[in-house]
């Protein structure tokens, strides 16, 4: 434990600002993955343990497109939509067969998908870790805000994720599609009785979740190691986020992701050797006090 450095940090504006922006960097990427996980659970009632796969696919596709075309925007699009397409195929081929099935069966299928896609990535891109490289635009010194430091690329990432959060909230709250989605989450039988195609809704929601995970992977590719199995650690974290925030709640995913981000950055100062443990203790506490999560609907 090193509580001194934690308290001395709270005494300095620059430190608080730096650590808070770092919390946002970690949290917002996590949010992109976790929100897909939570959407899929809220509507399809499937805990998609294979969600990390789409994060990995997004990263690899972005890397390949960036290194062949040199265009970063194109790489982002490829990562997001590529993952969405693969997601759509997987939903049709496998996921759609396990809706409403024994949860053990769902876990098993997801586990199989992780095994298969990690090996496929190894077959296609090789087992080596890869680095995509930072686009030239962002190869600039970090900016200083009130003495706190933030790299421009991370500011860009936070902005993209924040924009997505807003768009998502608007779509769910204001559009007809959002209404149908909310209704389908509540009572799928009624929705389909009204002549709305729930099969298409489910497929779309699943693909949208994968798109967000793929985009997160593409955004992470310039700074994180791209390798088979990279989806795993992000899966565990986003899983914790959704449990803390409440399965099915978008606001919960955002708050949970930011909480974990802050816990990580400030925890690194105060508890350098038990940072990870803090996360699990927090998760146990939330589950015990409020099993459905901070923003979850009271579970049955």
């Amino acid at each position: 434990m090193d509580l001194d450095s934690l308290f001395s940090c709270f005494a300095s504006t620059s430190c608080v600002i730096t650590q808070t922006t770092s919390g946002f960097i970690i949290g917002m990427l996590l949010f992109l993955v976790a929100v897909g996980l939570t959407l899929i659970f809220g509507i399809l009632k499937v805990v998609n343990f294979s969600h990390g796969v789409f994060y990995m696919i997004g990263a690899y596709l972005a890397l390949t497109v960036y290194q062949t075309t040199g265009s970063f925007p194109l790489a982002l699009l490829a990562g997001g939509f590529g993952a969405a397409l693969v997601g759509l195929a997987i939903e049709r081929a496998f996921m759609s067969r396990i809706y409403g099935a024994n949860p053990l069966m769902q876990i098993l299928v997801c586990y199989a998908l992780i095994l298969i896609f990690d090996d496929l990535a190894r077959l296609i891109w090789g087992g080596d870790f890869r680095s995509m490289g930072m686009p030239d635009v962002f190869q600039v010194p970090p900016v200083f805000i009130f003495g706190g430091v933030a790299p421009p690329y991370y500011i860009f990432v936070i902005a993209v994720a924040a924009a997505i959060a807003i768009v998502l909230a608007l779509v769910i709250a204001r559009t007809r599609f959002g209404k149908i989605v909310r209704a389908a989450a509540h009572n799928p039988a009624m929705v389909s009785a009204l002549g709305i195609n729930t099969v298409a809704i489910y497929a779309l929601v699943f693909a949208a979740g994968c798109l967000l995970a793929g985009l997160a992977g593409a955004l992470a590719a310039p700074v994180r190691t791209v390798s088979p199995g990279m989806g795993f650690s992000i899966l565990i974290e986003s899983f914790i986020v959704t449990v803390i925030g409440g399965m099915g709640s978008i606001a919960g995913a955002l708050v949970g992701a930011l909480l974990i981000g802050m816990l990580r950055t400030f925890g690194a100062l105060g508890f350098p050797l038990f940072n990870e443990g803090l996360m699990y203790i927090f998760m146990v506490m939330v589950l015990v006090i409020r099993p459905s999560g901070l923003f979850g609907k009271e579970a049955a």
């Binding site: 450095s5 940090c9 430190c15 730096t18 650590q19 770092s22 960097i25 970690i26 990427l29 430091v149 991370y154 992470a220 700074v223 994180r224 190691t225 990279m230 650690s233 992000i234 990580r264 950055t265 925890g267 690194a268 100062l269 350098p272 050797l273 940072n275 990870e276």
Partner: peptide
Amino acid sequence: SESWPKLAQPDYTETLTKLLQ
């Protein structure tokens, strides 16, 4: 200062900012 990131940790932001501090 000492930092101990986890093995295979994907993100080193908190480690780096701690270093800067």
